[in-house]
Design a binder for these strands. Structure first.
Length: 126
DNA sequence: CGGCTGACAACTT
DNA sequence: AAAGTTGCCAGCC
């Protein structure tokens, strides 16, 4: 249902990546968000996987992709930072806390992307 | 041009 | 509750 509405909103394919990049760039220091949250903010909740792919393409950029973790708070993409420890180090340096499992404390540091900003262009068009 | 893959997540059995 | 299946978009073979 939801995804159908999105298609009607005539979202350009490449637009999805742009949205992801925009949102990631807005993640405050010391905060983290999830692939699913970003996907949802971009309008397609099920495309969480694509968000990860977007990150992979953006890993060479200046985007704070280390602030994006999976729903469990696990740093699933750490191996893509050159060093598996780099991602955690960056987050710790920014003040993000980890639990005993090495996962981010989502309750304290989860940041919800503001999708309204991005959708402003499309207004309330269904 | 068709099919497979990938830093995920939700649904189903 | 745990494991398997499906859906998404873009890039690559």
């Amino acid at each position: 249902m939801t995804f159908l509405i999105l298609r009607i909103m005539k979202i350009k394919k490449s637009d999805f990546f742009d949205r992801v990049y925009t949102l990631v760039a807005k993640i405050p220091k010391g905060k983290v968000t999830t692939y699913g949250a970003l996907a949802e903010a971009c309008g397609i909740k099920m495309a969480a996987r694509t968000v990860g792919w977007a990150m992979n393409s953006a890993k060479n950029s200046n985007l704070p992709c280390h602030r994006v973790v999976n729903r469990n708070g696990a740093l699933t993409g750490r191996m893509h930072f050159g060093s598996p420890e780099l991602m955690e180090e960056l987050l710790r340096f920014e003040g993000v806390e980890f639990d005993n499992n090495g996962n981010v404390d989502m309750k304290k540091h989860f940041w919800e992307p503001n999708k309204n900003k991005i959708k402003s262009k499309n207004k309330r068009k269904k």
